[in-house]
Every structure is written in structure tokens, then in C-alpha cells.
């Protein structure tokens, strides 16, 4: 009997040791606090992820960049080669400033040779183009800022992502209707948080995501000097005004 328990424990130990599968279907950002919130501790490939923000404040491009970069770096195709695929960034308003993609920290920089800028004249063309990009196996991440999206269109984009195996990252406004049914794998609410002279912070909350830690908040910060990106739980962050915390508690 003793022998079998040994065998069982050995088996358990073997199973616990994660065998790296050749074709992965999820990725991590490497920021543990953020990954823990996501369903299963990982972000799904072949799915749409939505980043919601206050319509009056700027779109959460840094967070989108962080996820797009991680998705591109960890994309493994069947041949086993790592870090493949392009990032398509839909930028109809000519807003994105490409040199910034290189000047910031390594976690949020993208090889410009594998970044495609997409600029469509109208929203219909943009939705069509986004679906085409998501459906393409050569694209790891498709990033877009979408203000209006019907249920049907969202579902279509999600299906396209399932076919292509990349991720769709949609920056959308956070409105009262944002709690209605959705077709994305995860939805995050990103808000700017108070920072310091060197550090810019965002608070990121998981709104929806089956099996994730919904309602929990992490702070993501980018340091201007050291170029380090960190994620932390808000309590551990000492720079937030303590009075404000107590008042709300």
C-alpha cells in the first residue's frame, strides 16, 4: 500500500509540474497582481478583452499596450517559434504617437516592424477591418478604441478572435450601460490614480470575467526614471492619501 501512495504522490508531483504545452492558449502579463485577478490567473488567447474608462478621461493606452505586448511576446505557434505575429492598432484619429512605443519601459514597447496602424474613414469600415484582423492568424493583438458596439457586432468580433487565435483589446467608454450583457472574455475598468512626479498610476478593476476576482482593484504604475512597470494591491500603496481612504471606509 505504501508503494502505491508513493506512486500516487509521485504522480501528483508530476502532474503539478506544469508541462509546457507547445500551443498555448493563454498568456500572462508578468505582473502577478494583475494576472491573479484574471480568470484562472491568465489572459485568454482567441478572445476579446475590453478596457473601459471614463469617456472624459484619456483612453487607457498604456494598459492596452502592456497586454498587447504580452500577447505578442508569448504567442507560440504550432512550429514552436516564439513571439510571433503582428499588432494591429486602429487609430482613426491619428492620435497614436509611435516613438512613444519605444521610449517607455520594455514591458510596454512594441517592435515597430511588427506594428500595423489601421486608419479607417468610418466606423463601419473599422468594424469590418477589425474583424478581418482578428480572424487572421498572423495577428497576435488587435487594439481599437470603440465607442459604439452592438451586441451582434461584439459577438462577431469575439467569434473572429476565436478563429484567429489572437486577442482583441477594445478600449470603450465606461457608462451606465456597461453592466449589460457583453461578449468579451474579460472587462476591466481602468481609472487614472494619483501618482508622483516620477510615477504614473492607474487603478485597474476587473468588472466581468468568468472565474476571475471580480471587483478587486490593482494599481499599475510606470516609473519615469527607472522605466519599471509594477502592479500592486492598493493597500500596499503608501502614496495614496490616507485620509481619503479612511473617509470612504
Amino acid at each position: 500500500m505504501r508503494l502505491t501512495t508513493d506512486k500516487q504522490s509521485l504522480l501528483r508531483a508530476l502532474l503539478a509540474e506544469r508541462v509546457p504545452s507547445v500551443c498555448r492558449d493563454s498568456f500572462r502579463t508578468g505582473l502577478d497582481c494583475l494576472d491573479q485577478l484574471a480568470p484562472g490567473g491568465e489572459f485568454q488567447y482567441g478572445a476579446a478583452h475590453e478596457l473601459l474608462s471614463d469617456p472624459r478621461s484619456p483612453a487607457p493606452k498604456t494598459i492596452a499596450l502592456l497586454l498587447a505586448r504580452a500577447a505578442q511576446q508569448q504567442r507560440v505557434d504550432k512550429a514552436g517559434t516564439n513571439g510571433g505575429g503582428a499588432v494591429v492598432w486602429s487609430d482613426p484619429g491619428h492620435e497614436l504617437y509611435p516613438p512613444a512605443l519605444l521610449s517607455s519601459s520594455p514591458e510596454t514597447s512594441i517592435d515597430l516592424r511588427r506594428l500595423i496602424l489601421l486608419r479607417c474613414a468610418n466606423p463601419e469600415d473599422e468594424l469590418w477591418a477589425l474583424a478581418e484582423c482578428l480572424r487572421c492568424k498572423g495577428v497576435s493583438a488587435t487594439v481599437a478604441s470603440i465607442s459604439r458596439l452592438t451586441q451582434l457586432e461584439a459577438r462577431r468580433l469575439q467569434l473572429a478572435a476565436e478563429r484567429g487565435g489572437g486577442i482583441g483589446l477594445f478600449m470603450r467608454p465606461y457608462t451606465a450601460k456597461s453592466h449589460a450583457p457583453y461578449a468579451a472574455a474579460t472587462r476591466w475598468h481602468v481609472r487614472p490614480a494619483s501618482g508622483t512626479e516620477q510615477i504614473q498610476r492607474w487603478s485597474v478593476e476587473l468588472l466581468h470575467g468568468h472565474g476571475g476576482q471580480i471587483g478587486k482593484i490593482v494599481l499599475i504604475e510606470v516609473n519615469r526614471e527607472t522605466r519599471i512597470v509594477r502592479a500592486s494591491a492598493p493597500i500596499a500603496d503608501r502614496s495614496t492619501p490616507p485620509q481619503a481612504n479612511r473617509a470612504t471606509a
Binding site: P58, A59, K61, T62, L65, H94, E95, L96, Y97, P99, A100, L101, S103, S104, R224
Partner: peptide, 8 residues
Amino acid sequence: FRPLSLLP
């Protein structure tokens, strides 16, 4: 550091 968004 450069901003990710630049006004035209």
C-alpha cells in the same frame, strides 16, 4: 518618456 497620444 513620450506620450502615447499626440495631438495632430
